[in-house]
Design a protein around this nucleic acid. Structure first.
Length: 468
RNA sequence: GGCGGCGUAGCCAAGUGGUAAGGCAUGGGACUGCAAAUCCCUGAUCCCCGGUUCGAAUCCGGGCGCCGCCUCCA
């Protein structure tokens, strides 16, 4: 039995986590649709999944973590009537669908890396698994869960009595309306496409032959097909944003449970809430959504964004503002400062002193991945007057296995990170002026450097400088 | 309109029955020629009203406000 307790959307309760297969946790995370840059809010699901993965490993489990990459079939709305996001982006940019997907997949992977997410065991693309998706749809068809209309092959949600259970949907309240009219022939508004056939006049870049005609897979299908391929069924944890509960995850469950005869198909469903980006949704400087690189351009370290993330609980909306980001960056810089100070401390900490902090940190992690509480314990350690350098070092490095803030290889952010002959010369000039008590001259140099964004810090070891 | 979430010090936020974690900012102090950096100290009774309870930020009811998803309809 692990000590980890997670909030499970499926049961709407907190449950002790125990893997189906002893010693091995199988996790699937809904990944990005790679048609545009991912704004910083889209990083939250992966940061949350990363926390989960680290917590599972801390329990001594081997983790197989699969993340899908949606590079086809995700429509611009959930009514099965919109355009394919990838095709649409390709058409607008003059690039091919494959180029669009490759470009934004790389950006996304790079962003993940920069905010300290561990690499997934498997990244799987929808377009690499067309055969698996077709096989799954055929299985559903053979079992009588589908029907065909001009638009494609559809899943008949009425054939799956548990359909509304997961999201606690009130379908009656949504039954009527435009969604049915959008796709002629749909039997129920909630029915969804397994395989889509393009309209007669439409020429698509991404098309495949299938038993139902040349077309492309419905968005939901890939997650069922690929998770089954890489994790089997049932498996332990499925993660994603809360927005996926009513449609995407509901449909995944319907497909999978009907095709595979499993229930529950997934034991734990973990969903993250969103950031409230408020007025920061758009990057003013560039006129597009706020992406990680925009923060970097403003002088923030990517891991400072991770620190921001850690300050809130993943199931809680969190307000992102530049002010909050600056506060996080300052906190992160100072925490790193402590890590640097104790970096060369002795290897032999006093276990008796350490154990209480270790226990409290672990308790926070195990309590539904309570990162803010874990971070608070880290700060108590950092500031703790009752702890020596060896104890601080040992604890902070251990905690960083969960926090992922790179405390181990921390370099002092307040020190000189670069060398410049001209600036070094000016700093030396100021130093000699100070020695002969010519403070007016010394301050002139300091002011001049400040004007170009360079600040001088005097330390017992002499002056040093950094850019702000 | 339906569903879900939230409203805790200036800001970001933990905390779900027993007298409010942590970070940032502010103010004070130490250090400094003065600064910067760093360190120490420093603040809230928890949106409003009513109820349950010996006791509620934490449970119940009613307001007000905000966010998200679905929907435009009974």
């Amino acid at each position: 039995m692990t000590g980890l307790v997670l909030y499970n959307t499926r049961t709407r309760t907190r449950e002790a986590f125990e893997p189906i297969e002893s010693g091995h946790a199988r996790v699937y995370s809904c990944g990005p649709t790679v048609y545009a840059p991912q704004h910083i809010g889209n990083l939250r699901p992966y940061l949350m999944a990363d926390l989960l993965r680290r917590a599972l490993e801390a329990e001594g489990l081997r983790v197989t973590h699969v993340i899908n990459i949606t590079d086809v079939g995700h429509l611009t709305d959930d009514a099965d009537a919109g355009e394919d996001k990838i095709e649409s982006a390709a058409a607008k940019s003059g690039r091919t669908a494959a180029e669009i997907a490759a470009l934004y997949t790389e950006q996304w992977k790079n962003d993940r890396r920069r905010v300290g997410c561990l690499e997934a065991s498997v990244y799987c693309k929808a377009t690499d698994h067309i055969a698996e998706q077709i096989a799954l749809a055929k299985r559903l068809e053979a079992k009588g869960y589908t029907y065909r209309i001009d638009d494609g092959l559809y899943f008949d949600t009425a054939k799956f009595p548990r359909y509304t259970e997961f999201a606690r949907l009130d379908l009656a309240g949504q039954e009527s309306g435009a969604r049915i009219a959008d796709v002629p022939g749909k039997r129920h508004s909630a029915d969804f496409a397994l395989w889509k056939l393009p309209a007669p006049a439409v020429q698509r870049q991404q098309e495949w032959d299938s038993p139902w005609g040349r077309g492309f897979p419905g968005w939901h299908l890939e997650c069922s097909a690929m998770s089954t391929k890489y994790l089997g069924a049932p498996f332990d944890v499925h993660t994603g944003g809360v927005d996926h509960i009513p449609v995407h995850h509901t449909n995944e469950i319907a497909q999978s449970e009907c095709a595979l005869d499993v229930h529950p198909w997934v034991r734990f469903w973990i969903h993250n809430e969103f950031y409230d980006l408020g007025g920061e949704k758009i990057s003013k400087s560039k006129g597009h959504v706020l992406v990680l690189q925009d923060l970097v351009d403003r002088g923030f370290e990517p891991l400072a964004f991770r620190y921001f993330f850690l300050q809130g609980h993943y199931r809680q909306q969190q307000a992102f503002t530049i002010d909050a980001m600056e506060a996080a960056a300052t906190g992160y810089r100072r925490l790193l400062g402590v890590a640097v100070q104790v970096r060369d401390a002795a290897e032999r900490p006093d276990d008796a002193v350490i154990s209480a902090y270790r226990a409290r940190f672990r308790e926070a992690v195990r309590d539904d991945l309570n990162a803010p509480r874990a971070l608070a314990v880290a700060w108590e350690v950092a500031r703790g007057a009752d702890l020596g350098a060896a104890e601080k070092r040992a604890l902070l490095l251990e905690f960083d296995g969960f926090l992922g803030l790179d405390l181990a290889s921390a370099t002092p952010r307040t020190a000189v990170a670069e060398s410049d002959p001209r600036i070094d010369g000016l700093v030396a000039e100021r130093e000699s002026a100070r020695r002969r008590k010519d403070f007016a001259a010394a301050d002139r140099v300091r002011d001049a450097l400040a004007a170009e964004g360079i600040v001088i810090e005097d330390t017992p070891a002499g002056p040093r400088w950094r850019r702000t």
